[in-house]
């Protein structure tokens, strides 16, 4: 790879990397700081803020809520998204051209507006429990991502393989499971990651849907920083980063992330 890179290109690429990584370094530094306020660089190192976070029942409860909501919403979005994108991609000609855009509408509506209308309809009018409302809201929130990624994956799938399987004697419904799904595994995984992270990081929608005693981690962090200014939030962020990193590494090991991101 002896290709010459223009110095300006090298510099700008370096700046972009710095721009992306610097905040993470700051957070990392702040989390391990012994001081009682958010500061960088750290004066002396300590794990006390991690201890504090892990002992805060509010955070732990909220984390469990976030995890439950993210997993349920992602699973539901995949359950709806897989058949949807299958139909859209396979029968492209049979739908009007605007049809697939319908699934991207949630992206167009500002999340604050979306959260507020969910509050008015789902919580106030239907009186759904907070957990159900959260899962419903997040499912709608992440569905566009799932449909988009799955659609891209299915576009690369040659549906004549499905026809071949049927001609060899497999029931058409079974081919969806036995032929289509194994071949869009990477897409499903990518959709899962994207939807899961989107749900886990959401604030705006959750803000309206959380209620007494039930809160997501992001909302809990927001409430916390309104009152305290200690490095606990930095510690939470580091823990979340660590979890994400572990998930990525596990996926990389088991499926090969190169396939996922493709």
């Amino acid at each position: 790879m002896g290709r010459k890179v223009h110095p300006l290109l090298g510099i700008s690429a370096g700046l972009v990397f710095l721009f992306l990584i610097a905040p993470l370094v700051l957070v990392l530094g702040a989390a391990f700081n012994d001081a009682t306020y958010l500061a960088f660089p750290p004066q002396s190192l300590s794990l006390r803020w991690f201890e504090r976070v892990l002992s805060l029942q509010n955070f732990m409860d909220a984390f469990l809520v976030s995890l439950t909501v993210a997993i349920s919403a992602t699973a539901l979005a995949l359950l709806v998204g897989i058949p949807t994108s299958y139909a859209i991609v396979k029968h492209r000609g049979s739908f009007p051209s605007w049809f697939s855009s319908v699934f991207f509408l949630p992206l167009l509506v500002p999340e604050i507006v979306f959260g507020f209308s969910l509050l008015k309809t789902v919580i106030v009018a239907l009186e759904l429990p907070v957990m159900t409302a959260l899962i419903a809201g997040h499912t709608i929130l992440v569905l566009p991502y799932a449909v988009r990624v799955l659609g891209a994956s299915l576009s690369n799938f040659d549906f004549s393989a499905e026809e071949a399987a049927v001609s060899l004697g497999m029931h058409p419904l079974k081919t969806v499971l036995a032929v289509v799904l194994p071949n869009i595994k990477a897409g499903i995984l990518a959709a899962f990651i994207l939807a899961f992270i989107t749900s886990l990081n959401d604030v705006s929608v959750s803000l309206f849907l959380t209620g007494p005693g039930v809160s997501t981690l992001q909302v809990e962090v927001l409430t916390y920083v309104e009152q305290y200014f200690d490095p606990s939030v930095a510690a939470v962020s580091v823990l979340l980063m660590a979890i994400t990193l572990v998930v990525m590494v596990v996926l990389e090991r088991s499926f090969g992330l190169a396939n996922v991101v493709k």
Binding site: D158, S160, A161, A164, V179, P182, N183
Partner: peptide
């Protein structure tokens, strides 16, 4: 089939 239509997996 024209494009072989083998099952890729």
């Amino acid at each position: 089939f024209q494009n072989y239509a083998l099952l890729p997996h």
